[in-house]
């Protein structure tokens, strides 16, 4: 992890800069060009639903996504962040997905220490053919993040 690029995570941004109470959330998905981005394209070709709250950031390989970038997304107000990679053994760049997996594992363990609920992060594998899976994992994740956000808002309003 880069010291120079480490965002100031000790004081995370307010949880829901979007629109508290309206249920509007923001989810960022880093997709690798060869598998998961292609899978997202195929989801479109099959006209399967993808949540409107999801914003895709295309990278060439999931191995490109450093943990600080994920934390920066949270810092900038993302309610959820996804990294979707090629399945193990299918990486276009041989093993970038496995590096991404290792980084995700470590990050998930660090997140509670940084005050970010690990449930707001999702690492998964989506192949270029898995349109249904892409639709499924994005809808499931956005729904769970939406529920988390609603619970949080509820908590705030009760205080």
């Amino acid at each position: 992890m880069s010291c120079q690029t480490m965002p100031n995570v000790a004081h995370p941004a307010p949880e829901h800069p979007g629109a508290p109470g309206t249920g509007e959330i923001r989810v960022v998905a880093f997709l690798c060009n060869w598998c998961s981005y292609a899978g997202a394209d195929k989801t479109g070709m099959n006209q399967l639903p993808v949540p409107a709250e999801l914003s895709v950031v295309r990278v060439m390989c999931s191995g490109r996504v450093e943990p600080t970038l994920i934390l920066e997304a949270f810092q900038k107000g993302a309610d959820g962040v996804m990294v979707l990679a090629c399945h193990p053994g299918d990486c276009h760049y041989k093993e970038g997905n496995l590096r991404a997996f290792c980084r995700a594992e470590l990050l998930e363990r660090m997140m509670p220490q940084l005050g970010v609920d690990p449930a707001r992060f999702c690492f998964d594998y989506v192949s270029a053919a898995e349109a249904e899976k892409f639709s499924q994992v994005t809808n499931d994740f956005v729904a769970s993040v939406r529920a988390l956000a609603a619970a949080q808002t509820d908590l705030h309003s009760r205080r």
């Binding site: 010291c3 120079q4 950031v57 970038l69 997304a73 760049y93 590096r99």
Partner: peptide, 27 residues
């Protein structure tokens, strides 16, 4: 692929076309 970019602890490597600045701006 940019795997080295993510691995560099000094942030000394830039992925042309997918630089940290570009991805940050997109975020």
């Amino acid at each position: 692929c940019g795997t080295c970019v993510a691995a560099c602890p000094a942030g000394a490597i830039t992925a042309r076309g997918f630089s940290r600045t570009m991805l940050r701006a997109e975020l």
